[in-house]
């Protein structure tokens, strides 16, 4: 491969790591902090991506809008709409047990995918939406950078911002209450916390972060179709990343994104190089098996992930509170 080819690959690689890192941070807010089992990540990812695409593309006869708005308006819209969807779903499923929430969220994600595939007036259906611009490409061009490089910088900036915010949230009293809920719901409730409200807030924030990831994906990739939001890519990889990295740990979520994306995209190279002629079709399923087996190994051998959750301060607080009540 030429040097420029390697550079281009690395830019693409880290852009995807950044986008998946954002999704993993969103999931960590829901699962890692609060214990909410969302396996409909793909749905929020899709809502964010399509919202931003519809807002920013020029007017088109093939789908709703576009409204020709700037990139940042698209991102803001994506965050708001996915937060609203999260609010609606979180409100509906507030009282559900974990496994019911899991089924409900995957149902919503699949339903959204059906809507995207079927409602052509909205999304151009299976033909997909194209012509989504990369962020600030004129500006980066003026600096002598490619639009892909520009996307990477923008993604990195958003990732840093999200990381800063979720880390702050984790250390805040709010974050401690979330972990207290996860560890011991009755005790937290007895301590006078409105559990439903905290839970809903975490779900909405997590959903908004996932929507942001979707918007960034749309603007980097430039083309959207329902295929991109199959549970494999949108949901499963994110889960493996968070579990591998260490749920409850924001840095772990990022490490997981790097490691799993390296394995996932690296396996493509290895397989295309090593599979005999005519067997290329096996690469996809073999890679899925690789990641699937990896997940089982992690769950069995190292369930706490590469970077286990640190400083379980909330648990100590809860114990103390429990002791006080007795």
């Amino acid at each position: 491969m030429e040097l420029s080819g390697i550079a281009a690959y690395l830019v693409s690689f880290f852009t995807f790591v950044g986008i998946y890192g954002i999704l993993a941070l969103g999931l960590n807010m829901q699962w890692g902090f609060t214990g909410q089992f969302n396996i409909g990540i793909a749905g929020f990812f899709a809502v964010g991506a399509y919202t931003s695409a519809i807002l920013t593309t020029p007017e088109s006869p093939w789908h709703l809008g576009g409204f020709g708005q700037p990139f940042l308006v698209g991102v803001l819209g994506a965050v708001i709409v996915s937060a609203l969807v999260g609010l609606l779903i979180g409100w509906i499923t507030a009282r559900l047990r974990t496994d019911y929430l899991a089924i409900a969220t995957i149902g919503i994600a699949e339903t959204l995918r059906l809507i995207i595939a079927n409602e052509s007036w909205l999304t151009n259906g299976v033909r997909g939406m194209s012509g989504i611009d990369r962020p600030f490409s004129d500006f980066f061009q003026a600096l002598g950078l490619s639009s892909a490089m520009g996307s990477l910088i923008v993604v990195a900036a958003f990732l840093a911002g999200v990381y800063f915010l979720v880390e702050r949230a984790r250390q805040s009293p709010w974050g401690r209450v979330l972990r207290a809920i996860r560890e011991n719901e009755p005790a937290t409730e007895a301590a006078g916390k409105n559990i439903g409200r905290f839970r809903l807030e975490a779900f909405v924030v997590g959903s908004a972060i996932m929507g942001l990831g979707g918007a960034l994906y749309a603007h980097y990739f430039g083309f959207l179709s329902p295929e991109a939001f199959l549970p494999l890519y949108g949901t499963f990889l994110v889960w493996v990343m968070l579990i591998a990295g260490g749920s409850g740990n924001n840095l772990g979520a990022l490490v997981g994104a790097v490691v799993i994306w390296t394995i996932w995209s690296g396996s493509e190279f290895v397989m295309s190089a090593s599979l005999p002629e005519g067997y290329g079709g096996y690469a996809g399923p073999l890679r899925v098996i690789l990641i699937g087996v990896l997940l089982q190994v992690i769950l069995i051998a190292r369930p706490e992930g590469l970077l286990p959750e640190r400083a379980p301060q909330a648990i100590a607080t809860t114990r103390r509170e429990r002791a006080r009540q007795q």
């Binding site: 089992f37 974990t98 073999l286």
Partner: peptide, 26 residues
Amino acid sequence: IRRRQPVILLISSFGIGLILRSFVQI
């Protein structure tokens, strides 16, 4: 992993499903 939280089994089974599907494809 049965002795851990049931949701761990749930996410594990999600992965098992993908593995089975991939074997069928292969």
